Deep mutational scan, measured.
Amino acid sequence: NQASVVANQLIPINTALTLVAMRSEVVTPVGIPAEDIPRLVSMQVNRAVPLGTTLMPDMVKGYA
């Protein structure tokens, strides 16, 4: 099972992602792969992401 990126805190809309804001977890459905965490740092989310939410490619500006 592949680990996905999960919000480690509430991430407000247009907030730049940080290492502290993300964690890796095996979840269903699978979201952005955990190995992409370094690439996600400083990218912005295009919606509010609640704690525990799996990050999907369409939630991160410039990711997809």
Rank of each mutant, 00 (worst) to 15 (best):
N1Q: 14
N1T: 15
N1S: 15
Q2C: 10
Q2S: 12
Q2I: 11
Q2N: 15
Q2D: 09
A3W: 11
A3L: 11
A3H: 09
A3E: 10
A3S: 10
A3C: 11
A3I: 06
S4Y: 04
S4M: 02
S4F: 03
V5H: 00
V5W: 04
V5A: 08
V6C: 05
V6G: 02
V6A: 00
A7Y: 02
A7K: 00
A7D: 00
A7N: 02
A7C: 05
A7H: 01
N8S: 12
N8M: 06
N8H: 06
N8I: 06
L10V: 11
L10S: 13
L10R: 10
L10K: 10
I11G: 04
I11T: 03
I11Q: 01
P12M: 08
P12L: 10
P12S: 08
P12V: 06
P12H: 11
P12N: 08
P12A: 09
I13G: 09
I13M: 12
I13Y: 13
I13S: 13
N14Y: 14
N14S: 06
T15C: 11
T15F: 15
A16K: 13
A16P: 13
A16S: 11
A16G: 08
A16V: 12
A16E: 11
L17G: 00
L17W: 00
L17K: 00
T18A: 07
T18V: 07
T18S: 11
L19M: 13
L19Y: 13
L19I: 08
L19A: 07
L19K: 07
L19C: 08
L19F: 14
L19T: 06
V20E: 14
V20F: 15
V20K: 15
V20R: 15
A21E: 04
A21K: 09
A21D: 10
A21N: 14
A21V: 12
M22S: 02
M22D: 00
M22F: 04
M22T: 01
M22N: 00
M22W: 00
M22H: 00
M22K: 00
R23C: 06
R23G: 08
R23K: 10
R23N: 06
R23Q: 03
R23T: 07
R23P: 00
S24P: 12
S24Q: 10
S24Y: 08
S24F: 08
S24H: 08
S24L: 06
E25D: 10
E25F: 07
E25A: 12
E25M: 12
V26C: 11
V26K: 08
V26M: 11
V26T: 09
V26H: 12
V26Q: 09
V26F: 13
V26W: 13
V26D: 08
V26E: 10
V27I: 06
V27D: 03
V27E: 02
V27K: 06
V27S: 04
V27G: 03
T28R: 07
T28D: 14
T28V: 13
T28E: 15
T28Q: 11
P29A: 03
P29K: 04
P29D: 04
P29V: 05
V30G: 08
V30Y: 14
V30E: 11
V30F: 14
V30P: 14
V30A: 12
V30L: 15
G31M: 02
G31T: 03
G31W: 01
G31I: 02
I32S: 02
I32C: 05
I32R: 02
I32Q: 03
I32E: 01
I32D: 01
P33K: 07
P33I: 06
P33W: 08
P33C: 09
P33R: 09
A34L: 03
A34M: 06
A34S: 09
A34D: 06
A34I: 06
A34H: 06
A34N: 04
E35T: 14
E35H: 11
E35S: 13
E35Q: 11
E35L: 12
E35P: 06
E35V: 13
D36Q: 12
D36P: 00
I37E: 02
I37C: 03
I37R: 06
I37G: 02
P38D: 10
P38S: 11
P38G: 10
P38W: 14
P38A: 10
R39D: 06
R39Q: 09
L40P: 01
L40K: 00
L40N: 00
L40S: 00
L40E: 00
L40A: 01
V41D: 01
V41L: 12
V41G: 03
S42Y: 10
S42R: 10
S42N: 13
S42K: 13
S42E: 08
S42M: 13
M43V: 04
M43F: 09
M43P: 00
M43N: 03
M43T: 02
Q44H: 15
Q44T: 15
Q44D: 05
Q44R: 15
Q44E: 09
V45M: 03
V45K: 02
V45Y: 00
V45S: 03
V45C: 05
N46M: 12
N46Y: 08
N46D: 07
N46V: 12
N46H: 06
R47K: 09
R47G: 05
R47M: 09
R47H: 06
A48C: 14
A48P: 09
A48R: 15
A48D: 15
A48N: 14
V49T: 03
V49R: 02
V49C: 06
V49Y: 04
V49S: 02
V49H: 03
V49F: 03
V49N: 04
P50M: 13
P50G: 09
P50V: 07
P50W: 06
P50C: 09
L51W: 11
L51R: 15
L51H: 10
L51F: 14
G52L: 05
G52M: 04
T53K: 09
T53G: 09
T53I: 09
T53F: 15
T54H: 02
T54K: 02
T54Y: 02
T54L: 04
T54M: 02
L55V: 08
L55A: 03
L55W: 01
L55F: 07
L55T: 01
L55Q: 02
L55G: 03
M56C: 06
M56F: 11
M56D: 04
M56R: 08
M56H: 07
P57G: 07
P57C: 07
P57K: 07
P57E: 06
P57R: 08
P57S: 08
D58E: 12
D58C: 13
D58V: 08
D58M: 10
M59S: 01
M59T: 03
V60S: 03
V60C: 05
V60R: 02
V60H: 03
K61L: 10
K61G: 06
K61D: 10
K61T: 14
G62P: 03
G62L: 07
G62Q: 08
G62T: 06
G62F: 08
G62V: 04
Y63C: 05
Y63D: 02
Y63L: 05
Y63Q: 02
Y63N: 03
A64F: 11
A64K: 14
A64R: 13
A64Y: 09
